[in-house]
Write a protein that binds this DNA or RNA. Structure first.
Length: 205
DNA sequence: CAAACGATTTTCT
DNA sequence: GAAAATCGTTTGG
């Protein structure tokens, strides 16, 4: 079933990041349907989180979507090449978000292979935030899009991730964030092949 | 207006 | 393992 707005409107973004593991991210873009089970996420916790684009209440044209309603997409370009997809949570003027970092391909695999110029299926197809977005067809033009739309949405298909399989670690690529870089805000499914190779201290489980 | 820099990935050595 | 690719956003002058 489609995840309702209430799922995204909760205040605890860390909990939402954990809950998103095992959910299914679906897109219907340029006439092609693709989907994948979420295997890796990162939480970005509001204006006090130094690693967040909204740290200190910074509000710009780029991150405006983070200040919008929960259950919408925040997509931005990183390193001039990669389109990174986030889910906005909590409430209006509360810039909380969850970065989706990896999925396991489920449907539309042929389309994903074409988009990524791959010939055979391997984990690198969708393991990593930039790679995942490219495979699913997500683009910065989808910034601000509602997740209740028929363009990008997230379903609960009853997949349960066992507690023992849930790993917390530090976030990736946010060394500039000082102490906040060490917070255990990255979550992924233990031993799952479709998880980014990014290094990050495993902090708890 | 100019300059630096990234919530990354790929390729080359 | 190291470095390049690549460009919009942000920041400083």
């Amino acid at each position: 079933m489609l995840l309702a707005d209430a799922f995204y409107q909760r205040k605890d973004v860390v909990k939402i990041a954990q809950d998103l593991l095992g959910k299914v991210l679906c897109t219907h873009i340029n006439g092609s349907y693709t989907s994948g089970m979420i295997t890796e996420t990162e939480a970005y916790a509001g204006i006090t989180d130094k690693a967040s684009h909204a740290y200190g209440g910074r509000r710009t044209l780029r991150n405006e979507a983070m200040y919008g309603p929960a259950g919408h997409a925040y997509v931005y370009l990183c390193y001039g090449i990669h389109h990174l997809f986030n889910v906005v949570t909590y409430g209006i003027n509360e810039p909380y978000a969850v970065l989706i970092r990896a999925v396991q391909p489920l449907e539309g695999i042929h389309t994903m292979l074409l988009r990524r110029h791959y010939k055979v299926l391997k984990p690198a197809l969708t393991a990593g935030p930039g790679a995942m977005s490219q495979a699913l067809g997500i683009h910065t033009s989808h910034n601000g899009s509602s997740l209740q739309s028929n363009l990008i949405w997230i379903e609960d298909r009853g997949i349960k991730v066992a507690k023992a399989k849930l790993v917390a670690a530090s976030r990736v690529g946010v060394a500039y964030a000082a102490a906040d870089a060490l917070r255990p805000y990255r979550f992924f499914i233990k031993d799952h092949p479709y998880v980014s190779k990014a290094k990050g201290l495993a902090l708890l489980h």
